[in-house]
Every structure is written in structure tokens, then in C-alpha cells.
Amino acid sequence: MALDLRQLRYLVAVGEEGHVTRAAERLGIQQPPLSQQIKAMEAQLGFQLFRRKPRGVELTESGRVLFEEARAIMLRLAQAERDARRVARGEQGQLRVGVAPTAPFHPLVPGVLRAFREAWPAVTVTLDECLSRQAVQGLREARLDAAFLRAEPPAEPGLAVDRLLDEPMVAAVPAAHPLAVAVAPRPLRDFAAESFIAFARVEGPGMFDATLAACLKAGFTPRLGQEAPRITSTLSLVAAGLGVALVPASLRRVQMDGVAYCELAPCDRPSVPLCLATRREPGSPILRNFATLVRRAGRAPEEAATSEDSRGSAAPVGE
């Protein structure tokens, strides 16, 4: 019969103290029962663990082999208990976050990711760039824990969605376009004759739907040009002079040769949401910590969310 953890704890205590009485004090038991336990272990194993000395005990050669392994087991068990407690508190583990292609350009998203990493450095955060439909599917299949979306998905029992903010949109136009140098905001109807590049019309319809609704409200049906699967390809098509695109205002941080940004008049300026979606079922403590942090940031004053940081230094265009 194998030794149990209690016996291993007794062995380690006596081996480290080299004295049964001191080991008993350390363990919070009486000396005679501990001596009896050591003798019972030796009888169970069939060999002597300790040599008795006038002023204590010392490990035998075979006893030392078992002592070293027992101490390693106790250390691993203690570490496992600490790790389990950290996971239970949301301090250790993994968080998988889906991110819409345009979301990282808004200061809220990198801000909360940075704050989360600083608060819980032992949590591994993995980011997966994906469009809205891909992100929702990832949440349904538990491949993602949370996702930043640029569209509020239809309500469904398994998902919880928080609308964090609504970000105004601007027109991305070719640098040679007459309105590229416009100082005053322009009415959206000024772009009625342009081709509009459709960004991720099917897989991530948030920006497309916002563009279509705004144009119809302004009194015209947009003439659709090419469809682009990514925001970088959308801006590349704009730079090539193949059309214009309405994009979140934070995209002004992306400085690309051949692209300029034109403010739209407040009366018909569209906006696009930034949402956090999570599975509605009880999530891990890590996810609860993250969602709480994001929701708190989303409740910050709007001027902080659309601060001058969104107009700041140029950011490199990602893939």
C-alpha cells in the first residue's frame, strides 16, 4: 500500500528538522503519535527511514531517497494549490479575445488591453482579428471568450452584448479628390456621385449598414464599387482612386499615401458602434474581470473615448 500525503508530510517534517519533537511541534501534534507514525511507515515500507541518535534522528540512505521525492511532491502540491487559487481569482490562465479589424484603432481597445495586462500579468491574452460573424461563431463554439464588434449582433440567448460607445465616421477619400482639402465639415450628399467601397459587406456588415443608412437618410442611394475584405485593402482602394469609404473617425490615425480624411456635417454624420460580446453562460473569473474592466471603460465620458489621441501621431498600417 502506497504512502498517503499525511505520511509524506510527516516524513518531510522529521527529515527537515532532524528531531521528532521539533517536527511534532511544527506539525501541531504530540511527539509520541508522530514517533508511532514513523515506525508504522517503516513497517509498511519494509526498511528503516531514520537512524536514532542521542540528540535527534538522521535519514538512512534509503530514507533520504524517499525524503527527497516526498519533499518534491509536497512542493509541487503547494504550487498546484497556489495556481488553482490564482485561477479561481482570475489571476492566472488564458483569455481569448476576438477583435474587429477597425477596433484596435480606437483608444478604448488598446487601453483596456494594456490595463488588463498590467492588472493581471499572469493571464495570457491572445487576440484574433475577425469580422463580426466570425467572432459570434467563435463565441458560440467557445473558441473565443470575448469579442470587440463593430456591429450589434441580433439578440440570441447565448450571448451578452454591451454597446460600449458609438463612434462618428469620416469619409476616406483619394488625396487628389477636391474635398480632400476641405476645412469645414461637408454634407454627406456631396459624395452622392462617388463610388463607395464596401468593407466586409457580408462577414462584418456593421460599417456597410451604417454607410447605407446614412446615405439613404441624406437622400441618395450610394453607388457601390468594389468590396474589400479588410480595412487596409479598403484604404488601398481609396488611395488608388477607386472610390471613397466611410470609416470610424479613429482611422484618421492611419496615415496612408494617397488617402485623406474629410469631416462630415453633424446633421447627417453616421456612427458605428463598438460592442463587447461574451457568452452569457457563467464565464471564468478571468472573463468576468476583463468584462468588468471593459464596461467600466465604456462608461467613461465620451470625450475620453474620442480624445485627441484618435487624431494623434500616425499609426502604421497593419496587415
Rank of each mutant, 00 (worst) to 15 (best):
P121D: 13
L144C: 00
V123Q: 05
R150D: 15
C130N: 02
R140K: 15
V123T: 03
D128Q: 05
A135G: 04
T124H: 14
G158H: 12
R163S: 05
P153V: 08
P121H: 11
V161N: 00
P174Y: 03
A119Y: 00
P174G: 08
P157Y: 09
V123M: 05
E152W: 07
T124W: 08
P153L: 01
D166V: 10
E152I: 06
A119C: 06
E152Y: 07
A122K: 13
A135K: 07
L127P: 05
Q134V: 03
E129H: 08
A146K: 04
P121Y: 11
P174L: 13
T124E: 15
G158K: 10
P154G: 09
P154N: 09
E129C: 07
L144G: 00
R150E: 13
L159E: 10
L127F: 00
Q134F: 04
A160M: 06
T124I: 09
A119R: 02
L127N: 07
L165H: 00
T126L: 08
A160Y: 05
R140C: 10
A171S: 15
V161D: 09
A172E: 07
E129G: 09
E129N: 12
P174S: 08
D166P: 04
Q137L: 12
A151M: 15
A175N: 12
E156I: 03
D145W: 00
A175M: 14
A171F: 14
P154L: 10
Q137V: 02
P168S: 14
E129M: 11
L139R: 06
A151I: 12
Q134H: 09
V125L: 13
R150N: 12
G138R: 00
E167R: 05
R143A: 10
C130V: 09
L127K: 01
V125F: 07
M169T: 09
V170Q: 14
P154D: 10
L139E: 01
V161H: 00
D162G: 01
L159W: 07
T126Q: 11
L127E: 00
D162L: 00
A151N: 12
A147I: 05
A142Y: 08
E152S: 02
L165A: 11
R140H: 15
E152M: 04
T126C: 10
V170H: 12
P121W: 12
